[in-house]
């Protein structure tokens, strides 16, 4: 008897709630998007809330760059984390929903090609060699290191890489194979970079790629490949300096946040983005990403003040762009 009464009461309470549907309004900054940009945005969100004594609330989700833009272009979020520039399709859906945005590069991510520490033959690799390994035509054919370079031993080549939903995958395939998402299919793919770290560290013939932060945290278990961008150029190991001075090519890429221009009128969003740019350099370093030069953050603040809308990429990924080149581009 009692049970049914409680149950009925609970059911009524619930319908009551649903009917009144109180809106939950408070100073809130909503962010969603790429898992690559997440550590930086999380650090900024954490410090921003402390600095504001919790008067402003910030939420950060991980839906991937594509998922983040879907929500952003529906106007559900104020800021989108993106590990690549907005695409033409996403520009259209934003336009259709009347969402305008300010594009801000916030850091560099150096994609790092890693090998097993016991691998002493492939410490330097050319882009052409990487292409020979990863291009779609290599599927099932290139299975030994010797096939890539006759000077290398006849050891089985075991490949590890991120899954197809990742912006890292898109950028790497574009930079190495010349076409986004074009790759051989017979490699161990995982969205969890720690799985890739484990794979390469246990396999002498292993080769993989992922973001610089995962290499730095596991550098005693892995070796980083120095990349030769073009014949005749020196082999460059991934490092902070090499990314900043533009010699680590073509695997250094800028990562972005996109700010909803209308939301930027709200004081809490504007303050958050300003905080992001003012503390970006310090926090980016702390989470093991490569910060942009200080003038780039100042430039972003200027863009925010001017409400400079649009993207400078015109819906395409530009491989190997430096921040200086980026600042000179005109928004489209």
């Amino acid at each position: 008897m009692k049970m049914t009464k409680y149950a009925a009461a609970a059911a009524f309470a619930l319908t009551g709630v649903v009917a009144t549907s109180v809106s939950y309004a408070q100073a809130l900054v909503k962010i969603d998007g790429s898992s690559t940009v997440y550590p930086i945005t999380e650090a900024v969100a954490e410090d921003f809330q402390k600095a504001k004594k919790n008067a402003v609330r910030v939420t950060v989700g991980i839906s991937g760059t594509g998922g983040g833009f879907k929500k952003f272009c529906r106007g559900e979020t104020d800021v989108a984390d993106a590990s690549r520039p907005i695409t033409k399709k996403e520009m259209e859906s934003c336009k259709a929903a009347g969402v305008e945005y300010i594009e801000m590069p916030v850091a560099y991510d150096a994609l790092t090609v890693v090998i097993n520490p016991k691998n002493d033959w492939a410490k330097n690799m050319t882009v052409a060699e990487l292409k020979a390994i990863w291009e779609p035509a290599a599927q099932g054919k290139i299975t030994s290191w010797k096939q890539v370079n006759p000077a290398w031993p006849d050891r089985p080549l075991k490949l590890y890489g991120p899954g197809a939903d990742s912006g890292t995958f898109e950028y790497f395939t574009e930079a190495i194979n010349g076409k986004s998402k074009a790759t051989r299919g017979d490699f161990t793919a995982s969205e969890d970079d720690n799985v890739l770290v484990q794979g390469v560290s246990r396999d002498v013939g292993g080769l993989g790629y992922f973001g610089f932060a995962y290499y730095i945290e596991n550098k005693e278990k892995l070796g980083a490949v120095s990349v030769v961008a073009a014949p005749g150029k020196p082999a460059v190991a991934p490092s902070l300096e090499a990314v900043v001075n533009g010699t680590y090519q073509p695997l250094a890429r800028p990562i972005f946040i996109y700010v909803n221009a209308k939301a930027a009128e709200r004081p809490e969003v504007k303050e958050f983005v300003e905080f992001y740019m003012k503390n970006g350099e310090k926090l980016t370093k702390e989470v093991k990403y490569v910060p942009l030069p200080a003038k780039a953050y100042a430039y972003n603040l200027d863009q925010l003040a001017k409400r400079a809308k649009g993207t400078k990429f015109g819906g395409e990924n530009k491989v190997g762009i430096t921040i200086e080149q980026l600042m000179k581009l005109e928004a489209k």
């Binding site: 939950y24 408070q26 969603d32 997440y38 945005t41 999380e42 969100a45 954490e46 809330q49 919790n54 609330r57 910030v58 939420t59 950060v60 989700g61 991980i62």
Partner: peptide
């Protein structure tokens, strides 16, 4: 349904 990853406040 959109649970978040970073959230540093409690529901009211």
């Amino acid at each position: 349904v959109g649970a978040l990853t970073f959230i540093a406040f409690l529901p009211p």
